[in-house]
Write a protein that binds this DNA or RNA. Structure first.
Lengths: 213, 213
DNA sequence: TCTGTTGTTGTGCAAATGTATAATAGTGGA
DNA sequence: TCCACTATTATACATTTGCACAACAACAGA
């Protein structure tokens, strides 16, 4: 008669870790950095607080893991957008822009995670390393696209500097749009970013032509 | 004989508040958002914890006040730079750029304060209001400069959109430079920003020419 | 010199936090 | 069916947090 219903289910460490990471993401989105504690995450994941300590050293490590996880999903979304675009640099760059300003990239919840992570960058060398790597990858892809576009059109440009400026602009627009979607719109951001590409294609940014690094 | 040395000195509310605000700024810079509590601030300011509660409702209100205070100092620094430039829009814009990428604006400590503030924007309507105002002012000034530059050269451009893109780029560069000064340099950021102005002056950004808002 | 105002202290307390620990019980393999 | 492994729970404990309170004392005005 008594179907012994298990008081808890046992998961492979990787599975449980992923669940905890997802719970952390929810906590950061819902309560912010200040409200995201080991206990809050445990409650959100319906497990005991001790379990979090069993899998992660502390809340900081959990936030880093969350950044890793969510960051990979963002990179995926961007890659998918580029892959489904025609096999031509400009189209891919524009697909990248489009993907940058719609979910899952344009997402208030994502910003909360990013903010928490950024606040850890300064004090934790390991975090700094992860951040460096993620952004280097991010920029390398854009730099390549920009170099391809310029190369095909015989435009002389320091693709490295151009990519720095372009990513900074995308980041800034993304940040502001997540923080306060009422000041300007998705469409404004898209127009601005596409205009930058128009300018690149038209041979603008001549001041960045000289390679000097 | 006994020179009664006062156990504490009495300050006017405004003076004491400023001291607490400065202590908060130091805490945010030193310990980050997580390590900035009422007690930490009190210790940094050499006062009792109770005093903080006497002047501010809680740590959040203190962080907002700190953002207000520091934000005003930043705006001051930028204004001073523009005022000491020749009375011509392009010169002023370039002075603005130069000031943006050197202390006290380019400052790791400042970023810590900004990050804390940003993390409050989402949940607190009052904070959101302050943020909106600060950024609106910031953009209005740049928009005016851009409009002046374009107007003097008979260049058709949507100054509003252009200012949005330009501020986003400055913010992105500033953010990245504060987070990790090793990926690229102050000089890189300056070149990129100045190149944007070069492009504007040369009549670039034709895609933003159509006013459509 | 006295007195009222209020900035300031010091302390206490309940709640929340991180971490450690022993005990428990799912789960796969023998 | 039993056993070993370990994911998981439950609990405890020392700290830290925000908040509240009463008492104190600096300072200005009379």
């Amino acid at each position: 008669m008594d179907i012994a219903e298990p008081r808890f289910t046992r998961d492979l460490p990787e599975v449980r870790k992923r669940k905890l990471i997802e719970a952390t993401a929810e906590c950061l989105a819902e309560f912010g950095h200040a409200g995201t504690s080991v206990r809050a995450v445990a409650a959100k994941a319906n497990v005991s607080p001790g379990l979090v300590a069993h899998h992660f050293k502390g809340i900081d490590e959990l936030i880093v893991a969350t950044y890793d996880y969510v960051g990979a999903r963002v990179a995926e979304a961007l890659t998918r957008a580029m892959d489904s675009a025609p096999d031509e640099a400009e189209s891919k760059l524009r697909a990248f822009i489009e993907a940058s300003f719609k979910p899952p990239v344009l997402d208030r919840d994502l910003l909360a995670i990013w903010l928490s992570f950024w606040s850890l960058v300064r004090r934790d060398p390991g975090v700094r390393k992860v951040h460096k790597k993620v952004y280097a990858d991010y920029r390398r892809r854009l730099e390549q696209l920009i170099a391809d576009i310029a190369g095909a059109r015989r435009i002389k440009i320091d693709a490295h500097l151009a990519a720095l400026g372009f990513t900074a602009m995308l980041d800034g627009l993304w940040l502001e749009l997540c923080l306060d979607p009422t000041t300007f719109s998705r469409e404004d951001a898209l127009r601005i970013a596409h205009a930058w590409v128009d300018d690149l294609v038209a041979g603008g940014f001549r001041a960045l032509a000289v390679k000097r690094r």
